[in-house]
Write a protein that binds this DNA or RNA. Sequence first.
DNA 1: TTATATAGAACAAATTCAGTCCTATTGCTG
DNA 2: CAGCAATAGGACTGAATTTGTTCTATATAA
Lengths: 145, 145
Amino acid sequence: MIRMSKLADYGVVIMATMARERQPLDATVNARDLSEKAHIPLPTVGKILKALCRGGLLVSHRGPRGGYALARLASEITVLDIISILDGPVGLTDCTVAPLGACEMEATCPVRSPWHMINRRVLDALRGLTLHEMIDSTNILDKRP
Amino acid sequence: MIRMSKLADYGVVIMATMARERQPLDATVNARDLSEKAHIPLPTVGKILKALCRGGLLVSHRGPRGGYALARLASEITVLDIISILDGPVGLTDCTVAPLGACEMEATCPVRSPWHMINRRVLDALRGLTLHEMIDSTNILDKRP
DNA sequence: TTATATAGAACAAATTCAGTCCTATTGCTG
DNA sequence: CAGCAATAGGACTGAATTTGTTCTATATAA
């Protein structure tokens, strides 16, 4: 159904929530607080935060008063970054993600190249939106046609 | 993973194959031939053809020498049409498809409106490609940046 | 009347996903 | 230094979705 996983959906919400707190880059938020703010169960939040950390979007700090913080500015994190980490490579069809030669129909497939074009547009749409734009309530995104 | 179902993927291939035959609108192709041309198992092709027929994209003809034909010109059938019929409403997140008020976070959700914008772009990309453009090997789609 | 082809529903198997839990590790703090 | 707080990473289970098949009924051409 061309739907992304709930994990990725949650991930975007969590990242947006962190960014919206407008904390300095080095200020950390722990999983428990995020769970409450985003209304997502704590174990799930933890799982997502760990993945985002491994993916390089967050930095973590262990121990008491530990937590997570954005690894870079909200304006330099895109929706595509988040989804790719949590869901793997984004692609509408297998053949847009699989390595060249993986599909035996490749040479004669009537839809291969059109799919690549559509896929590129989808990627652009996801890459074109940063966390910063997402939380900036004064942005003009919604007014665009 | 933001991937559409195989059924929808097959559906697009099948429709493109039918359109590529460049047969007149009333000429029918049966499921068996399509199965061979598209390299998809016959039962699966049958299932997809039935669904596309119910969805109004194909017309069927029973009995010996029966089969299926496009219900309208290839230039008037979009990729979005095909996917919607086989996979249901297209939407990256549940909240872009669910009726208003279905999500309790709706009022305060930090990502709701950005998602709607991204979703609109994805829909546009899918709606912007017709079956005719897809099979027209001389089209300029691939050359676009 | 018979063979061919689709209609539609029901079904079984397989894959994927969501969510939880457990143990290890790190680092603050008294 | 001892104990607590917090993340790291993996394993595991249950559920939901998806895939692909099969079976019976119906229509139609020869």
